[in-house]
Amino acid sequence: MSNDDQEELARRAAAGDSAALNELLGLIRPNVLRRCARFLPCWQDAEEACQDVLLQVARNIDRFEGRSAFSTWLHVVIANSARQTYRSLKRRAAEEAHEHPPVEVPDPRTTSVIAGSRLDLLDALERIEARKPELVAPMVLRDICQLEYREIAVQLSIPEGTVKSRIHQARGQVREYLTQGM
């Protein structure tokens, strides 16, 4: 199915066509899962985020206005849901650690470098979001979702120059955070 077909399904679903919504959800699921896996190092966590994204799409498709491509709108939903899943998992892990201190500490030599890098990036984004939340979305949409500056500007309703500036600032802060942790 082409992108045009997906866009048409999204428009029909936004207009209240439940058959189009079901078809759209089935169509986007594999892509959503792959994109969630870019954020979250554990496949089960990516699957949890994927289910959350599909639920958010089903609940909020009527908010899709067609100002940007459906895929752009979907990237924003994916990024927000994956980051929320990460925060939720982090909170649960902290609660469990408090209730049941871990017996075994993972060996850093056997921990995936990619997984560790993703977690470091998510931690950095969380720190930035606490201080300057407006910097996070543009960077995530550009560097993780790989959207064009123009698409990000449309999605966030800000000028393209502002998008570039915020991405530059966010990257600098992420770099600073990551080099402190080393």
Score class of each variant (00 low, 15 high):
120 D>H: 06
85 T>M: 13
128 I>L: 13
100 H>Q: 13
113 V>T: 12
37 A>D: 08
50 C>I: 00
76 V>Y: 09
136 V>S: 10
94 A>V: 01
92 R>A: 12
6 Q>E: 15
137 A>R: 12
70 F>E: 04
12 R>I: 00
33 L>P: 00
174 V>A: 04
144 I>E: 10
112 S>A: 10
93 A>K: 14
66 G>W: 05
91 R>A: 13
35 R>T: 10
21 L>I: 06
122 L>A: 11
21 L>P: 07
1 M>H: 07
131 R>N: 05
100 H>K: 14
101 P>Y: 12
35 R>V: 02
174 V>G: 07
156 L>F: 03
6 Q>F: 00
122 L>F: 07
76 V>T: 11
57 V>P: 06
49 A>P: 10
94 A>T: 04
98 H>T: 08
50 C>D: 03
69 A>H: 11
57 V>K: 05
61 I>M: 13
181 G>P: 00
53 V>S: 11
34 R>C: 02
73 W>C: 09
92 R>S: 08
150 R>F: 01
12 R>T: 01
166 R>F: 04
96 E>N: 13
135 L>P: 05
26 G>S: 13
28 I>A: 02
34 R>T: 11
168 H>K: 11
63 R>D: 08
182 M>I: 06
83 R>P: 02
144 I>P: 00
28 I>Q: 11
83 R>W: 03
115 A>W: 06
151 E>F: 01
22 N>S: 14
57 V>I: 11
122 L>V: 12
167 I>W: 05
4 D>N: 12
61 I>R: 09
178 L>Q: 04
149 Y>C: 01
47 E>D: 15
68 S>Q: 12
124 A>Q: 10
55 L>M: 12
131 R>P: 00
132 K>V: 02
112 S>H: 08
77 V>K: 07
57 V>C: 06
123 D>A: 15
101 P>F: 05
101 P>S: 10
77 V>D: 05
106 P>G: 02
157 S>E: 14
4 D>I: 11
80 N>I: 02
27 L>H: 07
91 R>V: 03
85 T>A: 14
135 L>D: 05
90 K>G: 00
91 R>M: 08
101 P>V: 09
148 E>Q: 15
149 Y>V: 13
80 N>M: 04
92 R>K: 15
